[in-house]
Design a protein around this nucleic acid. Structure first.
Lengths: 210, 210
DNA sequence: GCGAAAAGCTATCGACCTATAGGCTAGGAG
DNA sequence: CTCCTAGCCTATAGGTCGATAGCTTTTCGC
């Protein structure tokens, strides 16, 4: 349901099932041949982002490499993946809709991604690689950065996805690296990790759970 | 209308005038004794944030000091000011509601703030103080960071506002400063600027324009 | 070709939405 | 004491919402 980027533009409550139907060229009740409820439409869009995203951060946590390089690579892959999605999924995470009981599973997935992100950052701080910022603050900062950078895409895609992905990764690692001189080294190591994260995140066949 | 933080929690479309009325202890139609339309309720909340925010970035642009110090001070004051608001205004900027013609003035104000932010960053890059990131990217990064850090407040106010304000300012300047060793110096200069920005931003009597 | 399932349609329901109409009341000015 | 205004009320208009019922069309294995 690619055309359901309406959710991203107008928000869940601001988008009616009639709007969606018109965008995909059918009548409103026909939507219900494909989705039992409006919430499930959003759930499918969210899962299309959350499931690969969780696979990416898990891959970054498992790789044997310094935290800084893993974080840099993860951010690159994440931004690139999000920017390559046909719709602006990140625009959905603002609404409180995630608190709806029907979307509890998606909310849990998102929380899990945040937990794993904090875990990676914590490891980096404990290992003396990263500046000892408050871990929760850093996680929120990264989330906000991703959210807004991706929202920029809707307006003026001023830069190529790969370049913007590097911008994000560089920005965060400049902020977090204890020794700024290591950035070039981190970048080089991260470049080597990128294929591994991409590989580990993509091929999961997804057994389409409950 | 302090109790209208409902907009922030549920989004504009997700909040009905009945919800608002109930929160302030009246019946739904009585709202219309105070506001002609639902949009104007949101407009007032937005202005309460946007007008002082614009004054702050203008103050930061006018002060005679290095860009890095002005940016650091601006971010501190901005985060502290936003966190001290009784409602989570930033939660409102996600919806597309800002594109509604009734809120065109608020959208313009917000764009102006973004323009002024870019101007400050550009000055810093041209002057060799800041890393030559894409200016638009940096503005979006800052916006996203502010948005999300403030949203954190709603859940777990893990840290005091002043400390979180310093976190944000430090994070951004570590990312942007060409010479990371200057951070302590920047922080000291910024500390001296904070009162000036606060002073220039607050006392504007506001002649309540058209 | 044929029959069943998948997917679309029209019609409509009941709930909820923003906003208006018009009346009641409390409090200050004269 | 009277009048006027501000602020609240009830009632309701007029429209949109998500979702269901039941019929028709398209698709496709055989």
């Amino acid at each position: 349901m690619e055309a359901s980027r309406l959710f991203a533009e107008r928000g869940y409550h601001g988008t009616s099932t009639r709007d969606i139907a018109e965008k995909v060229g059918m009548r409103q009740p026909s939507i219900y041949s494909h989705f039992a409820t409006k919430h499930l439409i959003l759930a499918e869009l969210l899962d299309a982002d959350l499931v690969p995203a969780r696979a990416r951060i898990r891959a970054a946590l498992d790789l044997p490499a310094p935290v800084a390089a893993r974080l840099h690579a993860y951010l690159q892959v994440d931004v690139a993946a999000i920017l390559s999605l046909p719709y602006d999924v990140r625009g959905l995470y603002n609404d409180d809709v995630l608190r709806a009981p029907e979307l509890a599973e998606q909310a849990r997935r998102r929380a899990e991604i945040h937990d794993l992100t904090r875990e990676l950052i914590d490891t980096g701080i404990d290992g003396g690689e990263l500046v000892p910022f408050d871990t929760s603050f850093v996680q929120h900062a990264i989330t906000g950065l991703l959210l807004e950078v991706v929202r920029e895409r809707g307006a003026t895609p001023s830069t190529a996805p790969a370049a913007r992905a590097l911008d994000v990764a560089d920005f965060v690692l400049r902020a977090l690296l204890l020794d700024a001189k290591l950035l070039n080294d981190v970048r080089a190591r991260a470049g080597a990790l990128v294929p591994h994260i991409t590989a580990l995140a993509a091929p999961h066949p997804e057994h389409a759970g409950a």
